[in-house]
């Protein structure tokens, strides 16, 4: 795993179902994905990266829509580009908004089910349309659907044959907050049931809500892989932002500045934010400083422990 924080292993997945080995994909002179090796197993894995990082290309190569220029991609031990039988166990939601406009949502989902060799396509379609809450609009033409409804129809079509592996490229695009929450709930549930869910998204907070594991791609290369917490812990050399809620922020800040691990301080009426190079040492000093300054500390939180800060760090490192 070139350049990724050392504590993380992109192939450290028990029971991997989707495996990329030294995977590269280039289009003419442009390298979209470069020597990516990583594995995906049961549970939800978020695929992160800035626009143009190569996420969509990687997902398309993994799904068998594109041939790798070098390396190998397998799903359940088979090469999807050549062994099409594996699609019986794979669901894919493409990023593009396009759907079959000449079909109704129900027909589209039934058609997908029947082609995936589901015995009772009608019943399976009805069930999955209920899951994505599209039953009321199911018999309307997809051409009249909003973007969010199209996304849900695509998700329904990808789920209808109960796949073991589900690959979703920006599935939450265009959905309203309620639909988004519902889709996240569905994906989390499927992950808990042991399905392999690979989901790319640029809405980092949502990935954080659904993914137990993250794979980050920057400039076509694998930047990091692991849990959000593990990624954050691996970045021990980067300053962290700690917020302390207190009744005496000015006094507490003055006292904490004595420690040489404090790099910057910002005070507001409700507390103090400290950028530190050593969060552990700061944590130990907070209690002492509060006692010495007679301050009441009501909360201590790491402001930048989010996926976004992890991701920004990875991009900056590249």
């Amino acid at each position: 795993m070139t350049g990724a924080p050392a504590a993380m292993d992109a192939r450290d997945v028990s029971d991997p179902t989707v495996v990329a080995t030294d995977l590269s994909k280039w289009f003419g002179q442009k390298v979209a994905v470069s020597e990516v090796s990583c594995s995906f197993g049961p549970g939800v894995t978020g695929l992160l990266g800035p626009n143009g990082a190569g996420k969509t290309t990687l997902l398309r190569v993994l799904a068998g829509l594109l041939s790798p220029s070098a390396g190998k991609a397998t799903i359940l031990g088979r090469t999807p580009k050549r062994q099409h039988g594996v699609y019986r166990h794979v669901g894919f939601v493409p990023e593009d908004e396009a759907v079959y406009n000449h079909m109704s949502a129900r027909r589209f989902v039934e058609w997908s089910a029947a082609l995936s060799r589901v015995d009772d396509a009608g019943a399976a379609a009805q069930q999955v349309l209920e899951t994505v809450q599209l039953t009321e609009a199911a018999d309307r033409s997809l051409s009249g659907f909003s973007k969010g409804m199209r996304q849900r129809a695509k998700v329904a079509a990808a789920l209808v044959h109960d796949p073991t592996v589900l690959i979703l490229d920006e599935p939450l695009n265009g959905t309203d907050p309620v639909q988004r929450a519902r889709l996240i709930e569905i994906l989390v549930q499927l992950g808990r049931e042991g399905k392999t869910i690979i989901v790319s998204s640029h809405v980092l907070a949502e990935v954080e809500r659904m993914a137990t594991r993250v794979v980050a791609i920057v400039n076509g290369r694998l930047a990091a892989a692991g849990s959000v917490a593990a990624l954050r812990d691996a970045m021990s050399d980067t300053p962290r932002l700690i917020r302390i809620d207190t009744d005496r922020p000015r006094e507490l800040a003055r006292r904490l500045l004595v420690g040489n691990w404090v790099e910057a301080v910002r005070i507001d009426p409700a507390g103090v934010e400290i950028r530190t190079s050593d969060a552990g040492a700061l944590g130990l000093d907070i209690a002492v400083a509060a006692r010495e300054t007679d301050s009441v500390v009501t909360a201590v939180s790491a402001e930048d422990d989010s996926l976004e800060s992890v991701f920004r760090y990875l991009v900056d490192q590249r």
Binding site: A63, G64, L65, P80, H84, G85, V86, Y87, R88, V90, F92, P94, D96, E97, A98, V99, Y100, S112, L115, S116, R117, A157
Partner: peptide, 15 residues
Amino acid sequence: KSHTLPFLLLKPVSR
């Protein structure tokens, strides 16, 4: 052109 080809290709059906 309309990007619907994946719906057809990603099915367990012989090319």
